[in-house]
Design a protein around this nucleic acid. Structure first.
Length: 842
RNA sequence: GCCCGGGUGGCGGAAUUGGCAUACGCGCAACACUUAAAAUGUUGUGCCCAAAAGGCUUGCGGGUUCGAGUCCCGCCCCGGGCACCA
């Protein structure tokens, strides 16, 4: 047989798969539908990354496996084509982002096809295509009509380098997620999406998902639900009250002062002298403090949390609703304007931040919770639960109980109520950049913000000359004068188009729906088709999107569900996250480090199959893993051996398998199937390697066994498998050939070598025929020289026999000193199992 | 600080979920082929001991069990996420 030529074999099969359109779903199959989705790539100028290859190969292996299992598989891909990097490169190279995107897509597509992915390319979508973003805009209008999209002028995160506003989710550690520049606060007019309205449902939906544990956990933390109470502290001398939020209402008797965030509206009012009944004694001081704090970025504000600055608002006093005590009010930037009510009741004895602040500003500290197990005096601040002291009639109550009691008391007086707060903020949805979906809104002096009528969609991105970001908070679209001016849909006036564009995340927040019906011009997708295919059965991608794409997509899907567009609330039933593929030096791959592995080079050197099998074999799918050149060579060696061995066996096949070979086959079927189903691809590959080792040793290989081996290789190394399949005399592709059938009884009937232990230590082995009685096994075991030696003349207290596993003689003598000294527990004497053990439950 | 995930040979890792720890691969060593090297093949390869016999070994310490990498309690270390969220 010839040396394997990966280049020509791979080209041959890729061409054939494409010509025969083999990867479209097969409606005639009787198996269930399976929607296998991977996160579509952003077609950057860098080309396909081997990290993509790891994700896409996993999804491809599963898709190919499921087809062979007789299921109707939908496996599409497309392009997440709007976004900043392309726009930035386009500006630098002085080309249009659309042209650049087109080039990048062409390159990506070629690269992806070279790996041999089984996508149904007839469903390819592109988020920057007007026929696609028309529906992104359509959804936006739905959200607008549902009251979920609104305009607001608030201080938002602004990246001075990208010259655009960002969502909270796009800020990492105070830096822009894209470029790493320190984010500043900038008040500009924004479109916001009311994701907070879905906070509870986004939280609840997580419970039913088959996702890696960490991802729902991250979303839970991000949503940050906390239950507590809102309490009104009346401002002395006025009818007004300051609302605070607390999760520890039980500590309210220990409130020795109140703190307002510098952004709190009352601060501004008092500085301007606009409040009747209160005159600030230190107006200038307060104003100076607020001004000073305003310029600090969030990161600076948090940077030195040990030092808590603040100023007392002299002349402002509030009364504690539980005991009418008058307490002072401070303004300090350790309280955030954007969470809760922007004001807190400070309980220095039971909150670390309040404690620090009180110490630094000499404010009184009053303990009101006594730890339950009182070891003298509690170390303050004490933040645990306990019993109330110094709390009038509530003294003696447990803190958990006091929270409930006090909220009822305050509720009766109308001065407090239960309240749930979230860390989640509304989604800042507009970007002051060119390369994104235009927001389909027309501003009319008379009618306000009016959605573009459905029949006028899409609102096309105008072709303009100057699309560099302005940096002023205006989008570059603002310069497209004749595009902007448009008749108001509601009245005869001339209105102005919205010039902000949507963020990168918009197009990917619903793309899995469009694959189902990519050319539909009437609807985003036909309801009938959606009902057939949704939800997505398997989603594969990066965990870095845990609180970005995966949260946004769930939100949009829920909103579409509420509109009756889709039938499921959750879009992705099962999600699997890839582990990062690092450079050989263990560092993240980057051009500047020079450790980037290019898939094209790997394919030309060892072939696509070797690349595929390698990324599957390198370790558990979810582990971060450095690239290893030697392991890649190892895998390519394995494939060469497969080629040679299968080729030479074709002429030497036996009528029947040897018993040994038949066991190996079914053991391999089991392990490869389970490996693929459970995303343990490394063990699936290992099983195939072991089977090859057996094929190399053995005579007694039947045609069907050899064919089964080739079929099991097919999802992982499809090109070589097809070529071998053809050489085995099958002219048609193996894509829809049935997966080898597992015969459990062959595994069960096999003779096994089992361990014989004496007091838990292995002293010998015996051959165990299935169904062998314990007495027979014991008899065989005693014949083993080494076993006999250890048994000696000692008394056998007990024999533990697990069929097919092991045989253990428990003997009573000096061999295991533990036995002599140990007391036999009561439950054992009674012949019962350990009540603490798991086993006793069954 | 809080919340997840994880510690198994020189390295990546496997272990039917409580039943022969170290499968598979890499690396290394010896041998074969070769003038030589590469490639390929064969054999060996957890640690201690010259070897056999034997003993030890899944981050550390305890416990449950006939039997623990796996279960329970307490610590240590590494990775990730969030972080003045009241």
């Amino acid at each position: 047989m010839n040396e394997y030529d990966s280049q020509s074999v791979e080209a041959k099969w890729q061409k054939r798969w494409e010509e025969e359109r083999l990867f479209a779903p097969r409606e005639e199959t009787t198996g269930r539908k399976m929607y296998v989705l991977d996160m579509f790539p952003y077609p950057s100028g860098d080309g396909l990354h081997v990290g993509h290859v790891k994700i896409y190969t996993a999804a491809d292996v599963v898709s190919r496996y499921l087809r062979m299992k007789g299921m109707n598989v939908l496996h599409p891909t497309g392009w997440d084509a709007f976004g900043l990097p392309t726009e930035n490169t386009a500006i630098k190279k002085k080309v249009h982002p659309a042209d650049l995107t087109k080039q990048n897509i062409e390159r990506f597509k070629k690269q992806m096809q070279a790996v041999g992915y089984s996508y149904d390319w007839d469903r390819e979508i592109n988020t920057s295509d007007p026929d696609y973003y028309r529906w992104t805009q359509w959804i936006f209008i739905k959200l607008f009509n549902m009251g979920l999209a609104y305009e607001a002028t608030i201080p938002i995160n602004w990246c001075p380098s990208c010259k655009t506003g960002l969502a909270n989710e796009e800020v990492e550690d105070g830096n822009c997620e894209r470029c790493g520049t320190v984010v500043v606060k900038k008040p500009i007019r924004q479109w916001m999406l009311k994701i907070t309205k879905y906070a509870d449902r986004l939280l609840q939906g997580l419970d039913g998902l088959d996702w890696p544990k960490a991802v729902p956990e991250m979303q839970r933390n991000w949503i940050g639900r906390s239950e507590g109470a809102e309490v009104d502290f009346k401002v002395e001398g006025t009818r007004e009250a300051i609302k605070v939020f607390t999760t520890r209402l039980d500590t309210i008797y220990g409130t020795t002062y109140l703190v307002l965030a510098p952004e709190h509206e009352l601060v501004l009012k008092l500085v301007n002298g606009q409040m009747d009944g209160v005159v600030l004694g230190n107006k200038d001081e307060v104003q100076a403090y607020v001004m000073q704090v305003k310029d600090r970025s969030d990161r600076d504000r948090v940077a030195d949390s040990e030092i808590k600055s603040g100023v007392e608002m002299k002349g402002l006093m509030v009364s504690n609703p539980v005991n009418r005590q008058l307490i002072p009010v401070w303004v300090a930037d350790y309280v955030l304007g954007s969470y809760g009510t922007g004001a807190v009741m400070a309980v220095p004895a039971h909150d670390e931040r309040d404690f620090m602040f009180a110490k630094q500003h000499q404010l009184p500290i009053l303990q009101v919770i006594q730890p339950k197990i009182a070891k003298g005096n509690a170390q303050l601040p004490y933040t645990g639960e306990g019993v109330l002291i110094n709390a009038d009639e509530q003294s003696g109550l447990k803190s958990e109980v006091a929270r409930e009691t006090l909220v009822k008391v305050l509720q009766l007086k109308g001065e407090g109520r239960k309240k749930v707060n979230y860390f989640l903020r509304d989604w800042v949805f507009s970007r002051q950049r060119y390369w994104g979906e235009p927001i389909p809104i027309i501003h009319c002096e008379e009618c306000g913000a009016v959605p573009v009528p459905e029949e006028d969609l899409p609102v096309r991105l105008p072709d303009i000359k100057e699309y560099e970001p302005t940096g002023t908070g205006e989008s570059p679209l603002a310069s497209a004068a004749d595009w902007i001016e448009v008749k108001c849909p509601n009245c005869p006036r001339i209105g102005k188009r919205e010039t902000n564009t949507m963020p990168q995340w918009a197009g990917s927040s619903w793309y899995w729906l469009r694959y189902l019906d990519p050319t539909n011009r009437e609807e985003l997708a036909s309801r009938e088709i959606m009902d057939k295919w949704l939800p997505v059965d398997l989603y594969v991608g990066g965990a870095e999107h845990a609180v970005l794409h995966l949260l946004y997509a769930r939100f949009w899907n829920m909103a579409l569900f509420d509109q009756g567009v889709v039938a499921h609330e959750e879009p992705f039933t099962r999600f699997r996250a890839v582990g990062l593929l690092l450079g050989e030096d263990g560092q993240k791959m980057s051009k500047s480090r020079g450790n980037v592995i290019n898939p094209d080079t790997v394919i030309s050197r060892v072939g696509a199959d070797a690349l595929r099998v390698y990324v599957m074999f390198m370790g558990p799918f979810s582990n971060a893993m450095p690239w290893s050149e030697t392991s890649l060579i190892g895998v390519s060696r394995f494939l060469r051996r497969v080629w040679k061995r299968v080729g030479s066996l074709i002429d030497k096949l036996s009528e029947q398998d040897s018993a040994d070979m038949s066991y190996v086959l079914h053991d391999t079927i089991k392990r490869v199937s389970e490996g693929i189903e459970q995303f343990k691809f490394n063990t699936a590959v290992a099983a195939l390697m072991e089977m090859l080792n057996k094929l190399e040793e053995g005579e007694g290989v039947s045609r069907s066994t050899l064919e089964a081996f080739v079929l099991m290789l097919a999802p992982l190394a499809p090109h070589m498998a097809e070529e071998l399949w053809e050489q085995l005399g099958h002219p048609e592709s193996l894509i829809y050939r049935a997966w080898p059938k597992l015969n459990q009884s062959i595994l069960a009937a096999a003779v096994k070598r089992i361990a014989v232990q004496v007091n838990g230590k292995v002293r010998g082995e015996i051959d165990m025929v299935p169904g062998m009685a314990q007495s027979k096994a014991e008899e065989l075991a005693r014949l083993e020289k080494n076993v006999a030696k250890y048994l000696g003349a000692s008394i056998v207290k007990k024999v533990v026999y697990v069929e097919g596993r092991m045989l253990n003689f428990v003997v009573e003598n000096g061999e295991n000193p533990k036995d002599e000294t140990k007391e036999v527990p009561a439950y054992r004497q009674a012949g019962e199992t350990n009540p603490k053990s798991e086993i006793s439950k069954f």
